[in-house]
Design a binder for these strands. Structure first.
Lengths: 245, 245
DNA sequence: TGCAAGGCAAATGTCCGACATTTAAAACAC
DNA sequence: GTGTTTTAAATGTCGGACATTTGCCTTGCA
């Protein structure tokens, strides 16, 4: 492991990059132990504090885990789907909230991705995921549900749709798009009428998946997109008018 | 900012979480300055070293940037698309390499996502991205190109297809899927015959996008998926036989 | 008055040494 | 052999010191 990187960067960043490259490059395998902090500070010729800061950077990216005690140390960590989900969702959410992504753009992306896995979901859907979708639809029909809970249920239903495709890579990729949309969706105030409309479309979608009718699922998703877009535009328009007055 | 988190976690992790939540929650806006390290160590009642380790964790996630000197400090960072791309690709690549994702699963996910944005790409494609696609096709036709370069060009072409949809959220989400596939694709040895086949499919795809024929693009992507899968399976089978003997 | 040079102060970056805590393994007692 | 104790290695935390960077203020000069 060498440091031949950007000399204007912090030492801890250079060291982190050096170790990170070794891990990504496959020089270190999962569960392999890194040298101790003392050894690393010798190798890189920096203080232990600097090495520690570098290791914390890697820990923040879930690249390593640390164990205390004898025969402890830093170990290359197997990145689990769950952790990757979490990081992806955090990054996606921040990206959307910090970059003034329009509701239209996010909405379009979300439904395009969902339509991509709908055919596979129709083909491979399992009873448990269909049950999840039905349960969320039932929850959405309950009066007195808060807008936030309604949105959360909406996300859960769409996650079930994605998971029904039984492709973990696809689930991982779409988790960011779907979950990151939730803060944007939470801005929408759902009337009783619009909830009824959405629940109806959700039912049609679930029926299509259950009946393995990909074309019908595609149509339902298209209509859901159009309706969501319609609701979002109303909210945006109302907000724009309010701020203008 | 309070610490009421998991008491068994490291202090630096708790503090990082506390600040991270404040940022994600929107309590701190972009470019807002965090308290200095000395002030933070007072507030959280820990040493400056611990605060620094926490800040390095946040820096690793691109949540903050630091400036030295007077009126320097740590600032909430605007997460750019480019940084988000980078993190997403790194995470995706590691996830695939560490979790023994089958070539089939990754391939299926990749083409499903690409098909999702093909209709939009047909609708909105611009001359510059069409030119990029043509240029990559031309590059792929050159004899003597290494397998790695051929794969890289393949990725570039598909990235152009995705970008042609002109939806940054979609581009961001798909970047991980497409780029993370490259190491897997690099394992394939391309014969002259298979390159010819792929270039032909790429040309048909580009023609479809140029002619705004979504159905034709969809078909081309389906055939490309089938052919890629075929090539991948051959390689895997040969490898399995080799290791078995 | 205007401007340039230099000093000042605040903040991060780095280093060092010390101690606390955890943990597995070795040593020991029975 | 088994259970207990000791020990050593490693990370976690602390406090202080100094280096470096950088904006700002002062001072001196024209």
């Amino acid at each position: 492991m060498k440091i031949d990187t950007d000399p204007k960067a912090d030492l801890s960043a250079q060291i982190a990059k050096s170790i990170r490259d070794a891990i990504i490059n496959g020089d270190m395998i999962v569960d392999e132990r890194l040298p101790s902090e003392a050894e690393l500070s010798d190798q890189f010729d920096v203080s232990r504090s600097t090495v520690r800061e570098a290791l914390k950077r890697l820990a923040a990216q879930s690249l390593i885990r640390t164990q205390r005690g004898a025969s402890g140390g830093a170990f290359v960590r197997r990145l689990s789907y769950q952790e990757a989900y979490g990081q992806h969702i955090t990054t996606s959410t921040l990206l959307l909230s910090m970059n003034a992504v329009s509701f239209e753009t996010a909405c379009e992306a979300r439904y395009a991705l969902e339509r991509a896995c709908a055919p596979m979901a129709c083909e491979r859907r399992t009873p448990d995921l269909l049950a999840t979708m039905r349960a969320e639809i039932h929850r959405q029909s309950q009066p007195g549900l808060s807008d936030e809970s309604f949105c959360a249920s909406d996300v859960a239903l769409h996650r079930a749709l994605v998971d029904a495709a039984h492709n973990p890579v696809l689930s991982y990729q779409l988790a960011g798009a779907v979950e990151a949309m939730q803060p944007l969706m939470n801005m929408i105030t759902f009337t009783a009428r619009s909830r009824e409309e959405i629940v109806g479309l959700h039912s049609r979608l679930t029926d299509a998946v259950e009946g393995q009718d990909a074309a019908k699922a595609d149509t339902a998703l298209h209509e859901l997109e159009a309706y969501t877009l319609h609701l979002g535009r109303d909210v945006m328009a109302a907000r724009a008018q309010k701020s203008g007055s």
